[in-house]
Design a binder for these strands. Structure first.
Lengths: 339, 339
DNA sequence: TATATTTGCTTAATCGATTAAGCAAATATA
DNA sequence: TATATTTGCTTAATCGATTAAGCAAATATA
């Protein structure tokens, strides 16, 4: 059973004493094949448990109908929700997706791109690893002549389509919210400036402080990888400052959670002593105590829009990509940590 | 730039006035090709930015060096950690993985299997969707003659390799722990019995109650899909019982979290009024208030072992699969919710 | 020096599915 | 009835990489 050879078009053709070409056409419902033959082909195909060989047809047609997806990690609600939507949209158009994760590693990301190109995907939708600065591996995708769409963590320099939220505005909204609650010393535990979205969040934060006539204190602006551990460490450092902040805006929910753990451990009341805001609206933000105010990133829209951009691009005969940004407004979800 | 054709072996061959066969051999470091030719091939390949066409070589060799992975969801720490380990092991052996998610849907799972078979993967490593009862789509994998390895949510009837933890014993350990803490009415919010692992957890729970001379009360045994929402709903029902439980063992951390939310909302003290135990050791169990006692599932070992089983199976000339279980001991991580 | 072996390639077939071109029979049209 | 068109296929080439078989030149061995 397990050892028998795969059924090919030729096997069906031999069974029916017709040519493989006729079988292929029958399967694709060609108008020049008789209904009788089509029915017989269908019957024998089922009988022999025929499974088309994707490698062969993809090779011949020059299209694999596979889309590669690269994400930093799959175990965040944001990315898995984005992927779910992409899958839904692409599935309808006859595309399947291959998900790879970079684990935030530059090296892994390069390897993933090689794998995807090697697998002959028809396009790549990616969100960059934290470590990524050099973009030559992404250029490789472009020079392969297949569409590249970036989401969330993108780069203008690549001159490709991008779907994401307005990070700059999000920071402005967060600071405005905290100021409204009476906060005067707002710290920011952010990502690294080299990553565009985190740079934008920092800029938004700084500009918002100025707008509200609050002084900018470099000791309150921290760059990190935004892991839970980073959140703990950086929060501890902030607490050791002579002049403690009365609010902390953290650019990731995971790091915000780390910060909250420290605050709870040190018996600092949130929100009364220090207000806390995260970013990403991960499900756990509403589950922890106190629940964490955060920014919803419209993951479903991002997934859908990125997939639609891909479909739009593959339908073009002559692929010409350029910087084409779709920026969605983010939404502040206010919870107990800043009330 | 984007529109130029891919470089093929033939292009390199033409450039050097040798045959494509020689180029292919040079690339594979064949001993019958001169060092001079090898170097020239390497140079021209780089010059023309040659990328081998995986479809062609896979078609010719009959091996795609791709492994399909099917998980219910990727956004749980358990599954993404399992996948990370698989990737690490398979990568070393020259295999790449394609991750698909069933979203706990039977229909989606069938579709995923079709996609993977169609993509000519060399094997499939899967964990079943909650909905799955009919196994014919999995039989299709077997009849394709490629290895199938199940992990976590498996089925004996398929007679293939399985890697998972000892669910029965885990339940026993949990009940013993709760009994030791003085609990007398232990409820169980479990999964559906049709899923083997959940059935084992229920059996382990029932047998453990008997062992400790506690009565078995059907109103305290609940089957559900174990989502967070299910946890909330079932917990509410348990609280409405005349004779409330003094402990709840939930077969998933997500549902346990839902249960905890209700308990917190109803101002029921955990662990003093009701003790709570989850399953899976998801990171948030240590983050919520109170932290949730849970069972660590050794995701890394499971991922590694499943990948190793695959490698072992593909290396066999004559694939013969049989029920071959690797059962790991789980570990109870005691936290505040049951202290 | 004559034969055997090794080296370094080429030739041609192959993996399956697809498709342009073409052909004979059946049918439609003038 | 003669020609045109349609129907229902077949033939042969193709997508790129790989490999068995083979051949001529170079080198080794007797």
């Amino acid at each position: 059973m397990a050892n028998k050879k795969r059924t090919t078009l030729k096997d069906i053709a031999n069974e029916l004493n017709i040519s493989p070409a006729a079988v292929s056409k029958a399967m694709h419902d060609d108008s020049r094949i008789s209904d009788k033959t089509k029915k017989e082909v269908e019957r024998v195909a089922k009988e022999l448990n025929y499974q088309p060989n994707h490698l062969a047809s993809a090779l011949r047609k020059g299209k694999s109908h596979l889309v590669g997806v690269i994400v930093p990690r799959t175990n965040s609600n944001f990315f898995s929700s984005v992927i779910e939507q992409m899958e839904a949209v692409l599935d309808k158009a006859g595309y399947n997706i291959i998900i790879t994760q970079s684990n935030e590693s530059f090296k892994k990301e390069c390897k993933n791109i090689d794998t995807l190109l090697y697998t002959q995907v028809d396009g790549i939708i990616a969100s960059m690893a934290n470590e990524t600065v050099d973009l030559s591996h992404y250029e490789k995708i472009k020079s392969n002549g297949i569409p590249l769409i970036l989401f969330d963590r993108g780069e203008n320099d690549l001159n490709v389509d991008y779907v994401g939220i307005n990070d700059y505005d999000s920071s402005q909204i967060i600071v405005a919210h905290l100021v409204e609650k009476g906060c005067k010393r707002i710290a920011h535990i952010g990502g690294y400036r080299r990553t565009r979205i985190f740079n934008n969040r920092i800029k938004g934060y700084v500009d918002a402080l100025e707008k509200h006539n609050l002084p900018i204190d470099d000791s309150l602006i921290i760059e990190s990888s935004l892991t839970l551990e980073d959140g703990r460490n950086e929060m501890l450092k902030l607490l050791k400052l002579k002049d403690r902040p009365d609010a902390v805006y953290v650019a990731s929910d995971y790091a915000a959670l780390g910060a909250l753990q420290i605050l709870n451990e040190e018996n600092i009341n949130v929100p009364n002593d220090i207000r806390l805001v995260g970013f990403g609206n991960e499900p756990f933000t509403s589950l922890v105590n106190p629940s964490i105010t955060s920014v919803a990133q419209h993951s479903k829209d991002i997934g859908r829009l990125a997939a639609e951009r891909f479909l739009n691009l593959v339908s073009q005969d002559d692929l010409k990509q350029s910087l084409n940004k779709i920026i969605l407004d983010a939404e502040l979800i206010i919870r107990d940590s800043s009330k």
